[in-house]
């Protein structure tokens, strides 16, 4: 048992060692070892500020998106005519890759922070919408039937049944959306006018500083992982009753 617990950590350690090994064997322009990357990262003075700025864009876009996507998704899941009316359009819009909107966003919002927020909004909107609508449609009918048998008022049904039953999928929607938002931020910072993390990344790429590039890539990956694990942790604490 303890060995199996240790395996993921061993795997991560082995992966880092492999990274170090490959990095040392290949020329530094192509790939750089883990140690050089970490060193480079620690010596990037602009990093904390850039992360904070990126997080600001991320949260703004994410919240704007969630405020529209979650209620709309919920309504699409609960009210049949809303679903039938919105579903075809949403399916169509969802089929367009978010990055394809970038030239359009430039026309509308320019190259700077408004545009980056917009790409974050688009990146996480449809994921949250679909999850919220699927979740709302699948709320256990028996729970609602119980509420009806006890002649609960609409308000009481909502507070005692619908809201608690929605918590799990709302959390899932937020988690998936937030991970997408991380991707959205870095996409915007690279493809629009370079800023924050994207700017550091492109500056390093222009100087063929592979260690610097890998450092930012690792930062973005860790950011995504932290966001995901953080929300999973929050979910486990808030939704104690859902735990098996």
């Amino acid at each position: 048992m303890s060995l199996r617990r240790a395996l993921p950590f061993l795997s991560v350690a082995a992966g880092l060692a492999l990274w170090e090994g490959i990095g040392r064997l290949t020329p530094p322009i192509v790939f750089s070892p883990f140690s050089a990357t970490a060193w480079q990262l620690l010596h990037t003075a602009a990093l904390p500020g850039a992360i904070l700025q990126s997080l600001g864009t991320l949260l703004t876009g994410f919240l704007l998106s969630a405020v529209v996507a979650l209620p709309l998704g919920f309504a699409m899941g609960r009210v049949w005519w809303v679903r039938e009316m919105f579903h075809p359009i949403m399916t169509g819009l969802y089929a367009i890759p978010p990055v394809a909107f970038i030239p359009f966003l430039i026309v509308w919002f320019g190259l700077f922070v408004e545009s980056r927020i917009a790409i974050v909004v688009i990146m996480c909107f449809f994921e949250m919408l679909t999850i919220a609508s699927a979740g709302a449609a699948n709320i256990d009918r028996r729970l609602q039937d119980v509420a009806r048998s006890f002649a609960a008022s609409r308000r009481r049904t909502a507070t005692a049944v619908l809201i608690p039953a929605s918590m799990p999928f709302l959390f899932t929607a937020l988690r998936v959306g937030l991970v997408r938002a991380v991707a959205g931020v870095i996409t915007g910072e690279l493809l629009l006018s370079p800023a924050n993390l994207g700017k550091i990344l492109l500056d390093n790429a222009a100087r063929f500083n592979t260690a610097g590039i890998l450092g930012i890539v690792a930062t973005v990956a860790l950011l995504g992982l932290c966001v995901q694990q953080g929300l999973l942790w929050l979910e486990r604490h808030v939704l104690r009753w859902e735990r098996p």
């Binding site: 199996r4 395996l7 993921p8 061993l10 795997s11 991560v12 992966g15 322009i29 192509v30 790939f31 990055v99 991970v179 991380v182 991707a183 959205g184 870095i186 996409t187 690279l190 493809l191 990344l201 492109l202 390093n204 790429a205 063929f208 592979t210 590039i213 890998l214 930012i216 890539v217 973005v220 990956a221 995504g224 992982l225 966001v227 995901q228």
Partner: peptide, 25 residues
């Protein structure tokens, strides 16, 4: 146990961030 940590790391990593280094590679 060996692969899952890597998979969860890669799936949340935005490809856009890897593009500049891929161009070099």
């Amino acid at each position: 146990a060996l692969l899952h940590p890597w998979m969860s790391l890669f799936v949340v990593t935005s490809v856009a961030a890897i593009v500049p280094i891929l161009i070099l590679m």
